[in-house]
Nucleic acid binder design. Structure first.
Lengths: 240, 240
DNA sequence: TAGTGGTCTAGACCACTAT
DNA sequence: TAGTGGTCTAGACCACTAG
């Protein structure tokens, strides 16, 4: 398998292995997992190319998880990928469990980044950030208080547009869907303010979840959430 | 790039592209990012193989993120990957923080899978599993009790070999390094047995962490860990 | 036995980079 | 201009699977 940057020669002609690759990709799109793809020698005959060229095309599709090779048997449409999961936020996370997520904005304003937030967002202290505090409910009951900090310069008009239901859906619409994140999670007890918001006694057990979410090279979100331990289990998919 | 299952022919001779690949991997291990790797034609001359064979070897290392090709310039040791984070276990996790992880095996035996463990490991109830319970310390202080369940049939000789220091390092040596995992995390209070092991009062705050780790298609590990909340923060990298 | 993917050869021309 | 990786050819033999 070889990374192809352009897919085309300088003169505009499509590369042969790309032609074969895209032909097979189209052919196989929507086919049932386990369905047979054309054999390598069939493709050699169809396209009039060398077998190594066909193999280069198929190698890419195998690496992408589209095809699967079985020696002595053939090439087949791969089983559905187990792990094309996306990073999700509270709203999407709860929806996946069949729970309706609601949010009440407690605070949404422009602030100057303090030292901690600036470092986490890879900004300079004093840069403009959006601070968004929400009380979050699942099926109507209070579950979580979340403080999110966003880099204002990446999100023009964010505060003016009316706050979105799902932060991640909004980021996705801006092409800033997080591609990976660093999370840290601790168990703790609630302080008095948190307790009041979460409708629990101070000192009750809570789950603290901090996230630093990155889209490409840019840190798009830094957040701290406090969950009622009696009402929430954090569920994460980890990839290698 | 081609997946190689065996790395060896039936007669035991190493495949040529594997020889080249491992030679380059060793050569480059510990080299500074950006350092030049041997050129393809150099390797052709060194090993007396065809260039396609060398390319197959290097393709694998490029896909793995070890090397980087720059057309017209050469092949180089890849820059540190933004996101080649591997799923880590307790040992590796603590090592990354500069903390020495130690484990004391409380129990390591063959059992028949109960309904929960069987479902989590994608086995049938009654199938043989390895149950491994460890008390885990960081820099000498008690941090965690972990119960891990492993599919015995995937790990021949595991119990006989002497328990490894790091489960994940052992799995990696067997080609079963987890590629992704589903984790669920809650905050809770310690029960009496846990409290005794963790050297805390019953009712103290703990962090519970369950993991279902998958390597390729196989579920290789299911575990439940209980951490002292006052001594441990869980740190996870999430990918989309 | 026929077909499949896995490995491998010994060349070739191209576009690109560095000197 | 010399060297690099990118693409491509036209074969070959192997181990394995299936009918």
């Amino acid at each position: 398998m070889t990374e192809t940057t352009t897919d085309r020669r300088a003169d505009g002609r499509a590369l042969k292995h790309v032609q074969v690759r895209e032909y097979v990709r189209d052919l196989v799109a929507g086919a049932a997992p386990g369905a047979a793809a054309p054999s390598e020698r069939e493709l050699v005959a169809m396209f009039g190319v060398a077998r190594m060229t066909v193999r280069q095309a198929l190698d890419t599709l195998v690496t992408e998880g589209v095809l699967e090779r079985i020696p002595g048997r053939g090439t087949f449409v791969a089983r559905p990928q187990r792990n094309r999961g996306r990073i999700s936020g509270f709203t999407e996370d709860l929806r996946r469990r069949g729970v309706l997520a609601e949010s009440q904005t407690l605070l949404a304003r422009r602030e100057q980044a303090g030292p901690g937030v600036a470092r986490a967002l890879s900004l300079t202290e004093g840069d403009a950030v959006i601070h968004w505090r929400r009380l979050r409910r699942g099926d109507g009951t209070v579950v979580c208080v979340e403080d999110a900090y966003l880099t204002e310069i990446l999100l023009p008009g964010f505060l003016q547009q009316g706050m979105p239901t799902s932060l991640y859906a909004d980021l996705e619409a801006r092409g800033l869907r997080p591609t990976w994140a660093e999370d840290s999670i601790t168990a703790d007890v609630a302080g008095p303010e948190e307790a009041a918001l979460l409708e629990i006694e101070p000192g009750s057990v809570v789950l603290r979840h901090s996230r630093r979410a990155v889209s490409g090279e840019k840190v798009v979100e830094v957040s701290r959430s406090v969950y009622r331990a009696d009402r929430f289990t954090l569920w994460l998919q980890i990839c290698g």
